[in-house]
Amino acid sequence: MATITLDHVDKLYPNGYHAITDANLDIRDGEFVILVGPSGCGKSTLLNMIAGLEDITGGELRFGDQVVNDLSARDRDIAMVFQSYALYPHMTVRENIEFPLKLSRMPKSEIQDKVAEVSASLGLDEYLDRKPAQLSGGQRQRVAMGRAIVRRPKVFLMDEPLSNLDAKLRVQMRAEIARLQQDLGVTTVYVTHDQTEAMTLGDRVVVMRKGVIQQAGSPDELYASPTNLFVASFIGSPSMNFMPGRLRGDVVSTGFGDIHLPESLVDAASRATSESVILGLRPEAFEDAYLVAPERRDQGMTISANLSLVESTGADRFVYFSPPEVEKPTDAARDAAREAGVDELGGELVARLTNATRVAGGDTMDLWFTPESLYLFDGETGESLRTDEVRAQ
């Protein structure tokens, strides 16, 4: 197996485009790491640099103690699984899986044993004599994975392998990939643009934007302690709500009125560079005030919401509303939000409630939340103030 170290890695194209900037990341032996971010953020470029398919223009890439910057892809002992499957159409499933073993001149008896083992683990036994054209998308993806697994490389690299599958099959294949990676214990780097996929699959998730690693941490760390506005808005579905606010001591003025900050946030507020802050509140932090036990109500804040839209998913109700008033954001706060991809501060908000709530668009209801669930971001920089976050490492 292998550890992977990115030490100030850069990718600069001849036309001056900086695709990857100062990437630093330590991937542990056997770890399942997800690279996630919007289209064009550099995640596939970074994966291709690890694979040896893209040149590194700065810094060092190491497998264990070996610098592999100039090592060809074939000499890195990696296996890749692509979105397009990349199967040989004229070969059967068996021939596709055994192909890399034949290239390595492995004895025929060993090849048969390894193909049988991989085929059984992926549920491909009944398809071994079929050709790719006779398979479904999910079956083709399993064949592509089998061809990668059969070699038992040091590193698996997967570039959006589930993008071509329908929603139900994606969930099924996610579970299969997670199980296989856990069973095999092979260091794996997986690229996706789907944050739900990233959060459910990885030991650790690396969030990227514009070629820069924004934060690396476990799914729980990214959700609970986002390092900046971008990570906070990208992780979580629906996305975090954001509102402008103004600090005055241990009180922050918002569209909901004045909120007295709990002790856990007073220290965070003291790190703000100005009175201007941006408040974040996850949709699931809200509760239907009618359903909150009386003994809990005094521990939080109740607001009146005029609902513009209600969506039901069966298990949840998503209610959309606007704050009664909007604290006018500073130009710097507005710019910090736009830079993070947050188009509007203090616009429509969303609460995620249980299906016990019976409301419809146009209704007015009371919503409840605790100040402890607030996130605070600097109104000048967009950096989180709430905790000492887990930084990209």
Rank of each mutant, 00 (worst) to 15 (best):
A2Q: 14
T3R: 04
D7E: 14
Y13R: 10
P14M: 09
G16R: 07
Y17F: 11
T21V: 12
A23T: 03
I27P: 14
R28M: 14
I34C: 12
L35K: 13
V36Y: 02
G37I: 01
K43S: 02
M49F: 00
M49G: 03
I50L: 14
I50A: 14
G52A: 10
L53V: 09
D55S: 09
D55C: 07
G58T: 06
R62S: 10
R62L: 15
Q66A: 15
A73S: 12
R76D: 10
D77Q: 12
M80V: 07
M80G: 08
S84D: 13
S84Q: 10
L87P: 00
M91P: 00
R94T: 10
I97R: 11
S104Q: 08
P107K: 12
E110G: 00
L122F: 13
L122N: 08
D125N: 15
E126L: 15
E126M: 15
Y127R: 11
L128M: 08
D129I: 01
R130A: 15
Q139Y: 03
R152G: 06
R152N: 07
P153D: 08
K154D: 10
F156M: 00
L157W: 09
M158C: 01
L162Y: 13
L165P: 06
L169S: 09
M173L: 09
A175F: 00
E176W: 01
L180H: 12
G185Q: 14
V186C: 05
T188L: 04
Q195E: 05
E197C: 06
M199D: 10
V205H: 13
V205I: 15
V212M: 01
Q215M: 03
A216N: 11
A216V: 07
A216H: 00
S218D: 00
Y223E: 11
V231A: 11
F234D: 05
G236M: 08
M243I: 11
G245F: 08
R246K: 13
G249R: 02
G255R: 03
G255T: 09
I259G: 04
H260T: 12
S274A: 12
S274Q: 04
E275M: 00
E275R: 09
L279C: 04
G280A: 04
A285H: 10
Y290H: 15
D298I: 02
M301E: 07
N306F: 05
L309V: 09
E311T: 12
A315I: 14
V319C: 01
F321I: 06
P324S: 06
K328G: 01
A332Y: 02
G341E: 09
G341I: 15
L353E: 11
N355G: 07
N355R: 14
A356N: 07
G361L: 02
G361M: 02
T364F: 01
M365Q: 09
D366Y: 09
E372I: 06
S373H: 08
L374V: 02
Y375V: 02
Y375P: 01
D378C: 14
E380W: 05
E383V: 05
L385T: 05
R386V: 07
T387K: 08
D388Y: 00
V390W: 04
